[in-house]
């Protein structure tokens, strides 16, 4: 880490970013806050209702259900993608032609539009026209994600693993590449086992990229919308209706914009809080050492 100069004039350099992001962020947030405390009938008729929507939303079983589902889903996603991503990063070649080739191949799922990811898995998993769905049924497992809630949930999870593990893998790969060769050489001379090398050389160096990776994956999986919407439409039943979709149904489908806004803010605060807690915890841990 370099020595930094204290100079508040640096704000001038940050100003364009600040203005740009503020334009796209602050006005919409204020609008949502505004919605959340009013009962809106049409453009000209709205009543101030205070915290009413918040109270109501915190008692709404459908939303609390989807919140629970959401946490469970995000947790599952992280539990699978983080170790798998690290593992992939460890087996990717670091030198030569194959390094660039495998980098490109692994990155491809990240470059596919999210709705197309949904489409791909829809085409792939359907029991009638999909290779995967057909194959699973062929080995004797009854699998139909359009009618079986468990199958649907697992398919969404598998899709997310397919789609996003590459992000963790690439981040970890970059972290691993930053380790100087001398560390591995010293470890060999110290007779470190493969596990000891991973535990004491590779893992500590992966920490900073993993923090960002976990944060991004938590945020994005917590707000997942497009892919399950295309794949399952939230069903069967409510089994794959995650928070974003529940809110969209409420806001656009039933046009209950006030309650939806209130819940959006609660939702936003949850994500913010979890990320902030995680961020601070990591920083504290760093300082403690």
């Amino acid at each position: 880490m370099q020595r930094k100069v204290r100079d508040n004039k640096a704000w001038f350099l940050v100003l364009p970013v600040f203005i740009l992001v503020a334009f796209s962020a602050i006005v919409p947030i204020m609008t949502v806050v505004n919605y959340s405390v009013q009962d809106i009938f049409d453009q000209n008729t709205a009543y101030f209702v205070g915290a009413e929507w918040y109270r109501e939303m915190l008692r709404n079983p459908a939303l609390l259900d989807s919140l629970g589902r959401q946490f469970f889903f995000s947790f599952s996603v992280l539990a699978i993608e983080v170790p798998l991503g690290i593992l992939i990063a460890l087996v990717m070649p670091t030198k030569g032609r194959m390094a660039a080739v495998s980098l490109i191949l692994v990155a491809i799922p990240l470059l596919i539009p999210w709705n197309v990811v949904g489409t791909i898995w829809q085409i792939f998993s359907r029991a009638d026209i999909g290779l995967f769905g057909y194959a699973v049924n062929a080995v004797g497992i009854d699998y139909n994600y359009t009618s079986d809630p468990t199958a649907a949930w697992l398919t969404v999870l598998l899709m997310d693993v397919w789609h996003w593990t590459p992000l963790i893998a690439l981040l970890c790969y970059s972290g691993l590449r930053a380790i100087p060769e001398a560390f591995y050489q010293a470890a060999r001379i110290d007779r470190a086992s493969k596990w000891a090398i991973f535990r004491h050389i590779q893992l500590p160096r992966l920490k900073s990229v993993l923090v960002i990776g976990v944060l991004l994956r938590f945020m994005d999986s917590f707000m997942i919308y497009t892919e399950p919407f295309v794949l399952t439409g939230g069903g069967p039943g409510n089994s794959t209706t995650f928070l974003s979709q529940a809110l969209t149904q409420m806001a656009i489908g039933q046009f209950d914009i006030g309650p939806a806004a209130a819940f959006s803010l609660i939702y936003y605060l949850i994500v913010l809080l979890v990320c902030y807690a995680f961020f601070t915890a990591i920083n504290q841990l760093d300082k403690a050492k």
Binding site: A182, Q185, A186, R188, I189, P204
Partner: peptide, 21 residues
């Protein structure tokens, strides 16, 4: 014989320490 079995120690140009220990 691989380095780990040669009973040799080597000190590198840039110090190598295990940060987490």
């Amino acid at each position: 014989i691989p380095p780990e079995e040669r009973n040799i120690a080597q000190v590198f140009q840039f110090p190598v320490v295990y940060d987490s220990m």
